[in-house]
């Protein structure tokens, strides 16, 4: 059991990263509830074992842990991401819930690899080197996947107009 100070630091870490971690987990599983469970599992393991000190890059370590937790669950491997009936993932600007649904649809339309890279870079605020560490690929591959993902995402969202009409 970690000390009170360690528990506090883990809680702070959870407060600052949990939203992006849950989004990343939801991008893999397609279910926010399962995403939430996976993230909590990771943090509860940290609280039990105090494994924070081993990680050199804490942020990358957390995203990698969440991904591994989900992939270790056999159900996740056989499941396609579907956002139908799924609750919101984002708090949209100007409470534009149509745009939120539009973004989720566009994300769901990406391949798993592209969706994960996009979420890690845009909302996880990870560099391509960190993304490479999380996904076990090279930084160049991560950057390349991101460029393709962004193009596909923009095309999908522009079909529903909003981001394109602003320019």
């Amino acid at each position: 059991m970690p000390s009170a100070a360690e528990i506090d630091s883990i809680e702070r870490l959870y407060r600052s990263h949990s939203a992006a971690l849950v989004l990343f987990a939801a991008a893999i599983t397609g279910e926010r509830s399962r995403a939430q469970d996976a993230v909590q599992q990771v943090f509860l393991r940290l609280l039990e074992g105090g494994g924070l000190t081993r990680a050199s890059d804490l942020q990358a370590y957390l995203f990698a842990s969440v991904r591994n937790t989900i992939l270790n669950d056999a159900r996740a491997r056989q499941r396609d991401v579907s956002i139908e009936g799924e609750s919101a993932w984002f708090d949209p600007p100007n409470r534009d819930h149509f745009a939120e649904l539009n973004l989720r649809r566009a994300l769901a339309g990406l391949s798993d690899d592209q969706r994960q890279v996009t979420v890690l870079h845009v909302w996880g605020e990870l560099t391509f080197a960190q993304i490479a560490e999380v996904l076990g690929i090279s930084a160049n591959t991560a950057a390349s996947r991101y460029r393709y993902a962004l193009t596909n995402l923009r095309a999908a969202m522009c079909a529903w107009e909003e981001p394109c009409a602003n320019s």
């Binding site: 949990s18 939430q36 973004l103 909302w123 923009r154």
Partner: peptide, 21 residues
């Protein structure tokens, strides 16, 4: 229909905040 560049599009995406856990 003009499409904004990657940087602008990224900015637009970042306006969507992931829901709190």
């Amino acid at each position: 229909m003009p499409i904004p560049d990657d940087e602008q599009f990224e900015k637009y995406l970042r306006q969507f905040k992931p829901l709190r856990a």
